[in-house]
């Protein structure tokens, strides 16, 4: 009983997260403006990180957390760089 419950819960939450990724992807593809796309990208990497955590729960493997951490780090830096770029037109001041 408990086996079925947890497998299904993980599956459902992964489906929900994929749908959320679809929404973020749509916002990233459609725009309408550059800041919307960056917002979509920002949401996309957070959701991807969450998806990796659920994979980690499913396989009981901690290696996924390290990749989740790396995604969080790199996503933050890239979003900041994009936002800086929008404001000034150059990344490094």
């Amino acid at each position: 009983m408990s086996e079925l419950l947890i497998i299904w819960a993980i599956l459902v939450s992964q489906i929900l997260l994929s749908l959320a990724m679809g929404c973020a992807l749509y916002r990233m593809a459609r725009g309408p403006r550059a800041q919307d796309r960056i917002l979509g990208l920002d949401a996309l990497y957070i959701i991807a990180m969450l998806l990796l955590v659920t994979f980690g729960i499913r396989t009981a493997n901690t290696i996924y957390f390290e990749s989740a951490l790396i995604i969080a780090l790199l996503g933050f830096v890239s979003s900041i760089a994009f936002a800086k770029f929008l404001m000034r037109g150059e990344v490094i001041e």
């Binding site: 419950l5 947890i6 959320a20 929404c23 973020a24 749509y26 949401a43 959701i47 969450l50």
Partner: peptide, 20 residues
């Protein structure tokens, strides 16, 4: 774990829907 997972992913989905 099921409850937390489902609540968390539903919340994320709602946030993404807001983006949409």
């Amino acid at each position: 774990v099921c409850l937390l997972l489902l609540a968390g992913s539903a919340m994320t989905l709602i946030g993404a829907l807001g983006l949409l």
